[in-house]
Simulated assay, not measured.
Amino acid sequence: MVRAPDPAPAEAPDGISASAARAARDLRVVFSRLRRRIREVARDEDLTPSQVSALTLVGKHGAATASALASAEGVRPQSMAAILAALEQHGLIRRSPDPADGRRQLVALTESGRERIEDDRQVREEWLARALADRYTEDERRTLIEAFALLERLTRQ
């Protein structure tokens, strides 16, 4: 079922066209829904969103201190300590002394943690590829690819 487009916002902020304001709102809503749906697809039921986020962060950036992870995630060090304790209990991370400063510990992924991240990524990508194949025509997928190229400009500084 095709949904009728929502009316444009009554007023856009000064200096911003109504179409830009609407595109911004629609983009935010769609990406939020898509992100939520993709999260549902992964097998993260035994981890909280904060734990998944911290695990992913360690996977992307490599070994880091708990305080660096807390800063990157925007949480208190005590909260990050609890998150890391849970991840360690699941066998997804390990802690080891920092070679540069033995008083600190570095958090790194275990092999199980690496596999977990890769498996979850693959499940998400397969779901998304299947959904795109099942719900869109070839022409519609090409249109999406063209739109993504335009959206890529938003990510450039």
Rank of each mutant, 00 (worst) to 15 (best):
E152H: 08
P5W: 08
I117A: 04
E118R: 15
T65R: 12
L154G: 01
S96P: 02
E45G: 09
R3Y: 09
Q51E: 15
A8F: 06
A85R: 15
A24R: 15
I83R: 14
R95T: 02
D26P: 13
D26V: 15
P7W: 07
E11L: 02
E125G: 01
S19Y: 13
E45F: 13
A54K: 10
L57H: 13
H61Y: 15
Q51W: 10
R104Q: 01
D46W: 08
A24S: 14
I16C: 05
P49S: 07
Q105P: 00
R3L: 13
S19W: 08
L87G: 04
A81M: 11
V29Q: 15
V75K: 10
L57Q: 11
P97V: 00
R94Y: 01
G91E: 10
G113Y: 03
A129G: 10
R33W: 05
E125F: 01
L109S: 06
T155I: 09
A54S: 14
E45S: 10
A23T: 13
P49W: 12
D44S: 11
I16V: 12
L150C: 04
T110M: 06
P77R: 12
R114S: 03
A20L: 09
A100G: 00
E146R: 14
E152D: 07
P7C: 06
L69T: 03
E11I: 01
E40M: 11
H61D: 04
E73G: 01
Q89T: 04
A12I: 07
R116C: 06
D26R: 15
L151R: 06
P49K: 12
D6C: 07
A21Q: 11
Q78N: 14
Q78L: 14
R153Q: 12
A131V: 14
A129W: 12
A4N: 09
I16F: 05
A70R: 02
T56W: 08
T143C: 04
L132K: 11
A10F: 03
L47Y: 01
A72S: 12
